[in-house]
Measured scan of single mutants.
Amino acid sequence: RELRDAFREFDTNGDGRISVGELRAALKALLGERLSQREVDEILQDVDLNGDGLVDFEEFVRMMS
């Protein structure tokens, strides 16, 4: 339940997936600093298991585990 709530916080447009822009904004909020595009792309590449360029809830749960 906590992970579902956190996912909703990251998924600002409510489409059920976290985009690169949403991921960048969430990481900035969490870390208090802006990451480079390359750093965000590397994180997305590690987390995006199905290669669609987005983070779905299952991928998010794995990222947070």
Rank of each mutant, 00 (worst) to 15 (best):
G32L: 01
R4V: 08
E58D: 09
S19V: 02
V20E: 14
L54N: 13
Q37D: 03
D52A: 12
R8N: 11
D48C: 00
E58F: 03
E58R: 08
A29N: 03
R17F: 11
M64E: 15
L30F: 06
R4Q: 05
V47K: 09
V20D: 13
G32V: 03
R38P: 10
G14H: 13
E9R: 14
E58T: 09
S36P: 08
D56V: 13
L3T: 04
R8M: 10
L54W: 03
V20I: 03
G32Q: 03
E9T: 13
L30E: 09
E59C: 13
E59R: 09
I18E: 00
G21R: 06
A29R: 13
G21K: 06
E22G: 14
R4A: 04
R38C: 09
F57L: 10
D48H: 15
D5A: 05
V47R: 12
D11H: 00
E58S: 11
G53L: 05
S36N: 06
A6Q: 12
L27Q: 09
R62M: 07
E22L: 00
Q37P: 15
G16P: 00
R17G: 13
E2D: 01
R17M: 08
N13V: 01
F10W: 09
D15E: 02
L44I: 14
F60Y: 08
D48Y: 13
K28V: 14
D46W: 02
R17I: 07
I18T: 01
V55S: 03
D48S: 15
M63S: 07
I43G: 15
G51V: 12
G14Y: 00
R38T: 10
R4W: 03
Q37R: 09
E58W: 03
S36R: 11
M64R: 15
G21H: 04
R62C: 08
S36F: 09
L49F: 06
L30Q: 12
F10G: 03
R62Y: 06
E2F: 02
L23V: 08
F60P: 00
L31I: 09
G51W: 04
S19C: 04
R62P: 03
G53V: 09
N50H: 06
T12K: 10
D56M: 05
D41S: 04
R1F: 12
Q45S: 07
V20W: 05
L30S: 05
A25S: 14
L35S: 10
Q45L: 12
D41Q: 03
R62K: 10
R34Q: 14
V47L: 02
M64Q: 10
G32Y: 04
Q37H: 02
V20S: 06
D5S: 03
L31S: 14
N13H: 01
G51P: 15
F10E: 02
E9V: 10
E2H: 09
E9I: 08
D46Y: 02
A25E: 14
L31K: 15
L31Y: 09
D48T: 13
G14R: 11
D11C: 02
E2I: 01
K28Y: 05
A6E: 09
F10T: 07
V61N: 15
S36H: 01
D48W: 08
Q37S: 08
D11E: 00
A25Q: 09
A25K: 02
A29W: 10
Q45E: 09
G21E: 15
L54A: 05
G16N: 15
V47G: 04
K28F: 04
R38A: 12
E58P: 11
E2Y: 04
G53A: 08
A26Q: 02
E33H: 06
Q45I: 11
Q37V: 11
G21T: 12
A6F: 10
E22R: 02
G14M: 04
D5H: 07
A29C: 04
A29T: 11
L35R: 14
V61M: 04
R8S: 12
D15V: 04
G21L: 10
V40Q: 13
R8Y: 07
S19K: 02
V40A: 12
A26H: 05
V47E: 07
D48F: 03
L35A: 14
D52L: 08
L23R: 01
A6C: 14
G51Y: 08
F10Q: 15
E2T: 09
G32N: 05
S19W: 01
R17W: 07
L31T: 14
G21Q: 12
L54M: 10
N50M: 00
V47P: 03
Q45Y: 06
M64Y: 15
V55M: 03
A29S: 11
L54Q: 09
R62G: 11
A29Y: 05
R62A: 10
L30W: 05
R62H: 05
V47M: 04
L3C: 00
D11M: 00
K28T: 12
E22D: 02
E42D: 06
N13Y: 00
E42P: 04
D5M: 06
E9L: 06
E9H: 03
I18G: 00
K28D: 14
D41N: 02
E42M: 07
S19D: 09
F7S: 01
T12F: 02
S36M: 09
E42I: 06
M63L: 14
R1A: 08
V55E: 00
R38N: 14
I43V: 12
E59M: 13
D48L: 11
L27E: 04
A29F: 05
D52R: 07
L23E: 01
G16H: 00
D5I: 05
F7G: 00
A6R: 14
G51R: 09
V61T: 10
Q45R: 13
L3I: 09
Q45A: 09
E2Q: 08
M64K: 09
D11S: 01
D48R: 15
F10A: 15
E42K: 06
M63C: 10
L35I: 14
I18L: 15
M63A: 10
F7C: 03
R8D: 13
L31W: 05
G14L: 05
V61W: 08
E59L: 14
D52F: 03
E42A: 06
R34T: 12
K28N: 07
E42S: 07
N13E: 02
G53T: 08
I18D: 00
E2G: 07
G32F: 04
E22H: 02
G21V: 09
F7V: 00
E59N: 04
D56Q: 07
E2L: 01
M63G: 06
R38Y: 08
E42F: 04
L30H: 11
A29P: 02
L27W: 07
A25V: 10
G16V: 00
A26S: 05
V47C: 05
E59Y: 07
G16A: 03
G51M: 13
R1W: 08
D56K: 08
D46T: 13
R34V: 08
L31Q: 14
E22Y: 00
K28G: 09
G14W: 01
L3R: 01
D52K: 09
N50F: 03
E42V: 08
M63T: 14
N50L: 05
E58H: 11
L54T: 12
L44A: 15
F10V: 10
I18C: 04
I43P: 10
E33R: 10
L23W: 04
E33W: 15
R17A: 12
A25T: 10
E22T: 02
V20C: 13
F7D: 00
F7W: 07
E9A: 06
M64G: 12
L3V: 07
Q37A: 12
K28M: 10
G21I: 07
F7M: 03
L3G: 01
N50T: 11
D56S: 14
E33T: 10
L35E: 08
D48A: 14
S36Y: 04
K28L: 09
V47F: 07
D46E: 07
D48Q: 15
F60C: 06
A25C: 15
L44H: 14
D5E: 10
L27R: 06
L3W: 06
R17N: 07
I43S: 14
I43W: 07
N50Q: 11
E33K: 13
F60S: 04
V40G: 10
R62Q: 07
R34I: 14
E58Q: 08
Q37T: 12
A29L: 10
E2C: 02
G14C: 04
L35W: 13
D46R: 02
G14K: 12
S36E: 12
F10D: 00
A29H: 07
V55F: 13
E59Q: 11
L35H: 13
T12N: 12
G21D: 15
V55L: 10
A26G: 13
A29M: 10
L23Q: 02
V20P: 15
